[in-house]
Design a protein around this nucleic acid. Structure first.
Lengths: 228, 228
DNA sequence: TTGACTTGTTCAATCGTTTGATTGAATTTG
DNA sequence: CAAATTCAATCAAACGATTGAACAAGTCAA
């Protein structure tokens, strides 16, 4: 009933699975777009099929049903994050200097901003993800365990090294969350930001302006460890 | 057919209208909660009526239909923001010192954090609002014009005074957005944040920790104007 | 104080539409 | 040809909206 896809990508943890293709891929892309834009329940299977250029029955065939497509979209989100940030990060070398840690933080920040704000795979990821976070938290586990938690830990290690703080301290963890929150807001609140800025979407110049602003705040926050 | 509520609150711009009561208020509160949690289309009128302790037909009676309830929820969001931040802000006095501007920024930041993260009216506002922003942008206009734009302008004026920059410059505007983005993220991503922090929701101690972190970043960002 | 009438509100029942899922035939692919 | 995939047609369930009856509170004449 739902044994079409060959599942053997979970055994190799370091490999980033390829992007889904064909009708299956088209449906996932349509789901990611429509679920994120309108919501899961608000998107009908007929809309999904039309957006993917196929028939309604394909959803049941490939994913077992509408809910299976949702699950596949969550996994696709995880895959896209892996594709941008690389496979799971290695532990930090002990002799990494603070300046190098700060530079890598800046690099990852820039990569994230360009991924989320620019045209491409990242554009519709946060909206979809947020709907999952706000609604039923069951499916969030997949993304949290496979992407968020290890990435956040990596960023905390870098942040701690760069600022001379304990990477496991609440202050560092909150600092990383607040830092990421800025980036996500520029995507989720794009409608508000671009209107207030007088922009017509995020072009290269606009992305560069956001980058400059967030990197400046990052460096300022890192230089000042907050007093106890 | 839909002339039940007495509309005469728009003429007085400085007054914060009272919170809606009775069945009408219960429906708005149910809408704010369920629309934000599950989504507009995912919430049935029967669920709304049950959550509000009334009958389905009350929705059509008070709001003309499900979409009218959505519109009423948007206006309630605007009202709640006004209730916390006060009526529309006055222009900054010319002789306001930078330190005073920075102090007021910190005060408004704290008020916002407690409003959005603590228990109460603000808790479910961002989720509902974001669903509106991501979906049909038509209803966003109400909130944008009545709340976001004037508030953002006020914050930009304070930010410019505190940091010695032009309050109308893109850098300042982006700085204010990034600053607000941090706060909103702690509400929208609460499921992720609390899990990673090992917290059980946002209690007073947790809110204080978030406050400390965001205020530290704010002060750091204000002290350092970013170089051109 | 009555009783009939009005107004504002809520109720159960019902309507036509749209939903996700299913089915068996048709089509493509190897 | 046979397996994999897509198609048009169809189903029961759930949807938003509507309807006319029912209820509560107030008004006014007698």
């Amino acid at each position: 009933m739902s044994d079409a896809p060959p599942p053997d990508a979970d055994t190799d943890p370091d490999a980033v699975p390829p992007a889904p293709t064909g009708t299956r891929g088209a449906l996932i892309r349509a789901g990611l777009h429509l679920f994120g834009k309108t919501g899961f329940a608000a998107t009908s299977t007929r809309e999904l099929a039309e957006a993917a250029g196929t028939n309604v029955a394909s959803i049941a065939y490939h994913f077992g049903g509408k809910d299976g497509l949702r699950r596949a979209c969550v996994e696709e989100v995880a895959r896209r994050f892996q594709a941008v940030l690389g496979p799971d990060p290695a532990p930090l070398p002990d002799d990494l200097p603070a300046a190098a840690a700060q530079a890598r933080l800046a690099f990852l920040t820039t990569a994230m901003i360009r991924f989320l704000l620019g045209r491409g795979d990242g554009e519709e990821v946060p909206a979809f993800l947020l709907r999952e976070v706000l609604g039923e938290p069951a499916l969030l586990d997949i993304v949290y365990d496979r992407v968020i938690a290890p990435r956040h830990a990596d960023l905390c290690a870098l942040w701690g090294r760069a600022s001379g703080q304990d990477p496991d301290s609440p202050a560092v963890r909150l600092g990383v969350f607040a830092h990421l929150g800025q980036i996500l807001y520029f995507r989720l609140g794009a409608a508000i930001v671009t209107r207030r800025m007088g922009w017509d979407g995020y072009g290269p110049a606009e992305i560069a302006a956001v980058e400059a602003r967030i990197l400046a705040t990052l460096n300022a926050a890192l230089s000042r460890g907050d007093p106890p």
